[in-house]
Design a protein around this nucleic acid. Structure first.
Length: 783
DNA sequence: TGCCAGTAAAG
DNA sequence: CTGCCTACTGGCA
């Protein structure tokens, strides 16, 4: 049977992949695909021959054969042994065996996520339409009907059920907390009754509605795990999945990890099988971009949507690099090899810097514009060919490196064809041919900037001129798609623009992280020299931009990594656009006018009012929109009341265009500020308005100082609620001094709150008010 | 008063 | 997918 359908969900089950499709008529299709996990072994050929004989006799593998693959670091083709495992369960044992081998044997492609590896190998991606050929519930062939990086695509109609809690998520389900279920225009609060009847009630609704998507708040940690436990315990079936047999359900634990020097907590996950469960409180991409975020990244990252939604941008960009590597026939090293080359202390001093900063003059400025480089770091990686394997590569140091070899990883060598779309029939025993490195040497479209022969500024590293690196190959299509989405968002009306905005925003985070990952010692495709090369080029380009601005008669007020603020009497859009074009030409990175400010304020350091700080500023563009960075209202530890007060003042300020306007607003703003102070003193604010949110930076026991955060976390601990690093603590400050037990009150114990530390909140409020009003104290109407 | 642990922001 | 740099606050001696 042939049909058209949308790839919805997939997961491994008993050594096969199960795929769920939705048809345009709204039917659900469950199909099975035999897929053997294939790993590669590299080493001396004699050793590989010996191993091949041994493996054939053993019971783990269904196929063993000699083949070739491309080494990531050298770009050379090397002989390898391919092993196709009989069972997915043998994978950990194979890794154990590999780990125990002595030097000289390298394992490749042996630690990839099963579903993702399946998608890489089959060249498929979720949330796209395919033509399928089906027989007896098995997938015979599959062909995509759209491009992976398409600007436009459609989703089939999805039936949605929502799930939430009636009270604070720290209160356990059915022990003070109730379940809220919604579908279409229904909204039902299931009373917090006994556990079995709660399960029974939800089971009835799930069965009746059979939603494609269950969209929850706190479902991953607070709702699904207890419901599932009760379902097992009381033998009440709960049809979370569409998988007919028992699903391989396991709740992945939450974990705390560091990212960009900050601790983050990724909650446990409770995915469904054949149905989507998305916990919007536990999905970075959903929080950032709504449903289109996870959909877009599941396609690009070639990852099941439920996994993609819960993953970090770093894991996602790694997945794209892995997909690229598999598609290009590159062998994926098991653990990262390359150690960082030794550097002298003097070298470190020169190289180990981040973005460049110019310090702004404190105070209010008029006639000022902001210019931003678009996706500066990813563009640098792309145009300068920066990738872990291209920095000080082995092939360009000498003279006669292998140039332009193409071939196939399995099967005989052939010339690379044009427009290699790379879609293959499902193999069903047939060998899948994988082209090697399609852009080796540099593809015709790639123009190294300005010359690949020049060493990296400051660091002096060389970059490969023969092979385009894995990172640039991965980034180029993302950059193109993001530019396309941004352009589309500008063309269409505001209503339609939203989905394009959501999608381009999801891509932004992948691009940002891709750069960050180059610097991680343990990232699979990280290499510190590559990271340094990127920031070195970044500083070089910002400096170039500054010089061009100054040559054009502009005064550069401020600069921050990839943005510039410039000032000139009578500055206008036409001249600025021309300036941007000139800088874009000179640097190879697109510089665009972010906007002309009616006025902008650069704030002073609070410790030394003479000294500016780089990252705190606010201003109003010509169209009246605000840009605010680093102020109280941008901080997550600012209580909502203070945040709202500051925002109200800012919004009033945004109506002023000229120095005279600003001066005239003074009395009204003071009056507003007085009003906020009075409300605080009156003491009738709701506790929710005063909640301070902080992230736990370490295990509760390890706090040496009794900060409010530590006290609040201990209060929760005493009530049996255990928090781990990266989780949020919410509390209200009751009194600053006095016994530690009563200084703060943690949420969710705020219902009975009858007082708060007015002095503390007044300080926060004053600080927020001063931040936005004090800079205008000296502004007179003549300025 | 000064030190430093703890926390957050912008890019 | 496992630790930027700088600014700032507040506990504590």
């Amino acid at each position: 049977m042939k049909t058209t359908a949308w790839l919805f969900d997939l997961y491994p089950l008993h050594d096969r992949m199960v795929l769920w499709f939705l048809t345009p008529e709204g039917k659900r299709l469950r199909l099975v695909d035999d897929f053997a996990y294939r790993v590669y072994l590299g080493g001396p050929e004699a050793r590989l021959r010996g191993l091949a004989r041994a493996w054939k006799k053993g019971g783990w593998v269904q196929r063993v054969y000699a083949t070739r693959g491309r080494d990531l670091w050298s770009g050379e083709e090397i002989p390898v042994l391919a092993l196709e495992l009989k069972s997915y369960a043998h994978l950990p044992r194979l890794r154990d065996w590999l780990g125990a081998q002595k030097e000289g044997l390298a394992g490749y492609n042996c630690d990839l996520d099963l579903a993702a590896y399946y998608l890489y190998r089959r060249k498929l991606w979720p949330c796209a339409w395919y033509d399928l050929e089906v027989r007896d519930g098995g997938l015979l062939s599959i062909y995509p009907l759209e491009d992976q990086f398409a600007l436009e695509y459609t989703l089939p109609p999805l039936s949605i059920m929502t799930l939430g809690l009636t009270r604070d998520p720290l209160i356990p389900l059915a022990a003070g907390n109730g379940l809220v279920v919604g579908w279409e225009d229904h909204h039902l609060e299931l009373e917090a009754q006994d556990a079995p009847s709660l399960v029974r009630e939800l089971a009835r609704l799930l069965k009746g509605q059979d939603p494609d998507l269950v969209l929850s708040d706190w479902g991953d940690e607070e709702i699904i795990p207890p419901l599932w436990d009760w379902s097992q315990q009381y033998k009440v079936p709960l049809p979370l999945d569409r998988e007919p047999g028992p699903a391989p359900r396991r709740f992945k634990n939450g974990r705390s990890y560091f990212s960009y020097g900050q601790i983050v907590y990724q909650g446990a996950s409770a995915p469904f099988f054949g149905r989507w469960h998305l916990d919007r409180r536990n999905s970075f991409f959903f929080r950032e971009s709504g449903l289109m975020g996870p959909v877009q990244i599941a396609r690009l990252g070639q990852m099941p949507l439920q996994q993609a939604a819960r993953t970090s941008p770093g894991t996602l960009i790694t997945s794209m690099q892995l997909a690229r590597a598999v598609a290009d026939g590159i062998l994926i090293p098991w653990r990262k090899g390359e150690p960082e080359r030794f550097k002298s202390a003097a070298e470190l001093l020169v190289i180990d810097k981040g973005g460049l900063t110019f310090m702004p003059p404190v105070g209010v400025h008029f006639q000022t514009a902001e210019l931003d480089f678009a996706s500066m770091y990813p563009t640098i990686m792309t145009i300068h060919n920066i990738s872990p394997e291209t920095v000080n590569c082995g092939c360009c140091g000498g003279n006669d490196a292998a140039e332009g070899t193409t071939g196939l990883i399995e099967g005989e060598k052939v010339k690379r064809g044009k427009g290699e779309k790379g879609l293959v029939d499902i193999n069903l025993g047939r060998e899948v041919l994988i082209p090697l490195c399609p852009s080796s040497p540099f593809s015709p479209g790639l123009k190294p900037w300005p010359s690949p022969h020049k060493p990296v500024p400051e660091a002096g590293y060389r970059l490969c001129r023969r092979r385009e690196g894995l990172v640039p190959r991965t980034l180029r299509p993302i950059l193109e798609l993001r530019e396309g989405l941004k352009a589309r968002a500008r063309e269409v009306g505001p209503g339609e623009a939203r989905q394009y905005q959501e999608r381009q925003n999801a891509l932004k985070w992948m691009l940002v992280t891709c750069f960050g990952y180059l610097g991680y010692k343990n990232a699979r495709f990280g290499r510190i020299e590559a990271h340094e090369a990127v920031t070195a080029y970044g500083r070089d380009k910002l400096l170039t931009a500054k010089e061009i601005c100054e040559a054009g008669g502009y005064r550069v007020l401020h600069g921050l990594t990839d943005c510039l603020w410039v000032k000139k009497e009578g500055l206008n859009r036409g001249e600025l656009d021309a300036l941007c074009r000139e800088i874009s030409r000179a640097t190879g990175v697109k510089l665009a006018l972010e906007g002309i400010y009616r006025w902008i304020v650069f704030l002073a350091s609070r410790q030394d009012p003479q000294r500016p700080v780089a990252t705190r500023y606010f201003g109003v563009f010509e169209d009246g929109s605000l840009k605010v960075r680093g102020l109280s209202c941008r901080r997550r530890d600012t209580p909502p009341f203070v945040r709202r007060a500051q925002k109200a003042l800012l919004e009033r300020l945004a109506t002023a265009a000229t120095p005279a306007d600003l001066a005239a607003l003074g009395p009204e703003l003071e009056e507003m500020a007085a009003g906020f102070r009075q409300r605080l003193r009156d003491g009738d604010l709701k506790p929710q308005e005063l909640v301070i949110t902080r992230v736990l930076s370490q295990p509760v026991e390890e706090y040496r100082v009794d900060t409010a955060t530590a006290l609040a976390a201990r209060q929760l601990q005493a009530a049996g609620i255990h928090l781990v690093p990266g989780e949020k603590v919410r509390y209200v400050q009751l009194e600053r001094k006095g016994p530690k037990e009563t200084r703060v009150r943690a949420a969710p114990f705020l219902d009975t709150l009858d007082r708060y530390d007015t002095g503390h909140y007044m300080e926060l409020l004053d600080r927020a008010i001063d931040e936005v009003l004090l800079p205008f104290a000296g502004v007179s109407s003549e300025q």
